[in-house]
Design a protein around this nucleic acid. Structure first.
Lengths: 136, 136
DNA sequence: ATGTGTGCAAAGCTTTTGCATCATC
DNA sequence: GATGATGCAAAAGCTTTGCACACAT
């Protein structure tokens, strides 16, 4: 199940938990957040293990690291092509699925230059923060 | 010259040097690199001052922070709309100016969602590393 | 005179690493 | 048994902050 041609990976209960935690949220958390959640289900899991497994999941193609200007790495178990938006008020990262027009343009550009991938992150204000501003 | 409606900014020789260093390279450096270069011209400049001024330049709109998955912040004094490519072999960050098609698609998407901006970073292999691989 | 900027050092936060031990194959 | 994974603690890397002094307006 975890096999990948380019690296030898054994099964590990910890990696399973790290993946499950990441896959069951849409909040694009950092390692600290994932660790806290993992500990609820596996109290002895160490932070180093979470860091190692997040990196491992990215290498296995089971997660991505969100591109941005954060102070820490943020991860996403959704590996379907999509973009992100970072709220300039509260810092939340939300998914943002591109229009067909944009998706095609991004693919064209990637292929035209012989690149291997891309990360696109918008900045803006999330729905929650917009609502709060209106209620003032 | 440095005035900006949203913040009061005095002149400072250090900020001038930080900007000049950043503006005279296309390597998208991090704070450490900028500090080393600044010290050649102003030996007593402190790292904290470089950090503070890089942040200040971004707020003033005279520089941007490159979006990516680096371990440290990387800056660019080119504020003209453009994208970046990070070499997966050597880590170099290179400029990448978008096709008209892509630029329009990005602007449409930004406006359609009411976002305020975006950062687009490709991954790939830079010309230098491609050349090295061929010579093997 | 007031407020902004600086240098220094310490502290804070994120991430990596060495190592003994354990689990998986 | 060999190799990969873990937990722990220490170390390393990046960034921010408190403070006293200097500088710009």
């Amino acid at each position: 199940m975890w096999y990948n041609a380019s690296m030898k990976v054994n099964y590990s209960a910890q990696r399973e938990v790290v993946y499950d935690v990441l896959a069951s949220t849409t909040c694009h958390p950092n390692a600290e957040w994932v660790w806290e959640k993992c500990r609820e289900r596996m109290p002895q899991i160490s932070k180093a293990t979470v860091y190692r497994n997040l990196e491992c999941l990215v290498k296995l193609g089971r997660a991505i690291e969100v591109v941005g200007t954060f102070g820490s790495s943020h991860y996403d178990a959704c590996v379907r092509p999509h973009n992100h938006m970072v709220c300039s008020v509260c810092g939340a990262v939300v998914d943002c699925f591109p229009s067909e027009e944009l998706r095609l343009a991004l693919e064209h550009e990637t292929q035209a230059h012989g690149y291997t991938g891309y990360g696109l992150t918008f900045s803006g204000i999330c729905e929650e923060c917009k609502a709060k501003q209106l209620n003032k």
